[in-house]
Design a protein around this nucleic acid. Structure first.
Lengths: 232, 232
DNA sequence: ACGTAAGGATCGTTGAACAATTCGACAAGG
DNA sequence: CCTTGTCGAATTGTTCAACGATCCTTACGT
């Protein structure tokens, strides 16, 4: 009897994981999802103004609903809301890039330094493999995506939902800069091998070396990005 | 002539600093400010439902504008927006508290470990002094506020605007838990002396010791908070 | 105890309207 | 030619009223 009850309890506990999916989304949220995707895929260019009237009509929603979506994306720093002037796709300054990398250093180094459970690295490992696969196929867009997944997984090692969310937003912001740049290859290729090396250090439990390696990694990435940012 | 022109240029350059102040806030943002204040001061209790109609009328704004404000606060995790049910003041679970402390460990330890410029600790120092003053006056509410300022200043050492903002939000969330608790004294008093000690270690440049000390500090704080959270 | 039906309350979304603000154009003046 | 004042079109900010959709409660019947 107790066995039966506790197995029911376990099943119920499992169900709670799906609870997040249960809360369907409102129209405003769905619109925000669409716009977010368009922005990070580069369809809307940084600096571009998004007309309330035009987009509301194009998506078939009212201006009020669209404005709610704008607020959401504004809070994610993907849109810049200027009073009485409208919303613009965010344009990142060099200072923004520097700040984003300051955050990355804090979040990613903390993850690498933390105690690493054996299986926790699985997602990380997979992302590295994906990047290598895409690189040998010459799919630099795919390499970029895999690299992003790698760093997202890295932060995931901290085990914090809030840090995961913060990293997600941060990477979305960074893509804003990626799209300003012409050559995707120079931006992503050099880091495939370094991701692999970093992973190896972590798997070997050499946390301090991994941290130092990642720090240098991030310094280089920032430098490269700022440089390309100036040029673009 | 050149002198004159360049002095004009300098004056114009100075003006740009004030540009941030120029962007006044919209009604929705001002409403969000009011509600945020009410929430973190405990006027609205965790779990309480905020009626659109009632609040819109009370503040003299339309439901649409109020909804924009709700979206803002929802994104800050102060409000819980449930579809078709309305918005509720966020209720933090034990898991939420644990997650918040995971984030604190990452943000604050990174700050303590970082290279510390001499004058950077000024704000931190002041917050500790304020806490001590409030403590000897028996103003436990004031002690709590000063402690919060201390940790905000700590994260500020990272030099990142985004981390500052994240910490601001995090502390606002934490206040949600504080208000559930009856005894403010037991929550804040034990940490006044520890703040002082931590500050001394940092001033002495003993970064590693400071980090270890802060780690233990945060462990204790989390334990205390979770414990009080269960009781309350 | 359980499923269901009805009703009221509240939210979600729309469409229209008007005020407030911005921006570009263009004329007047030094 | 450059600066300044003014006007008007275009867009945003905000309100309002309305209606359908959804949830919660209550009551009812099996």
């Amino acid at each position: 009897m107790d066995d039966f009850l506790s197995s029911v309890d376990n099943a119920l506990a499992d169900l709670e994981h799906d609870r997040s999916r249960l809360g369907r989304s409102s129209t405003a949220e769905r619109v925000a999802d669409i716009l977010r995707e368009r922005i990070i895929e580069g369809f809307f260019r940084p600096g571009q103004r998004l007309s309330e009237e035009a987009i509301a009509e194009a998506l078939g929603v009212s201006r009020n609903t669209l404005r709610e979506s704008f607020r959401l994306l504004g809070h994610e720093r993907l849109l810049d809301h200027r009073l009485n002037r409208g919303v613009f796709v965010r344009v990142l300054s060099a200072e923004d890039v520097a700040d984003l990398y300051r955050v990355r250093r804090v979040l990613e180094l903390a993850a690498v330094r933390g105690r690493l459970a054996g299986t926790a690295l699985a997602v990380t490992k997979e992302a590295v493999a994906d990047a290598e696969r895409a690189a040998s196929a010459g799919d630099w867009q795919g390499v970029g995506t895999a690299n992003i997944r790698f760093h997202q997984a890295l932060v995931g090692l901290n085990g914090s939902a809030r840090l995961d969310e913060a990293m997600r937003q941060l990477l979305a912001e960074l893509r804003l800069v990626f799209h300003v740049i012409k050559e995707p290859r120079v931006l992503h290729e050099p880091f495939v091998a370094r991701n692999r090396r970093l992973l190896e250090l972590m798997e070997a439990g050499r946390a301090d070396e991994a941290a130092a390696y990642l720090a240098a990694y991030l310094d280089d990435a920032e430098r490269l990005l700022v440089q390309a940012h100036r040029a673009g």
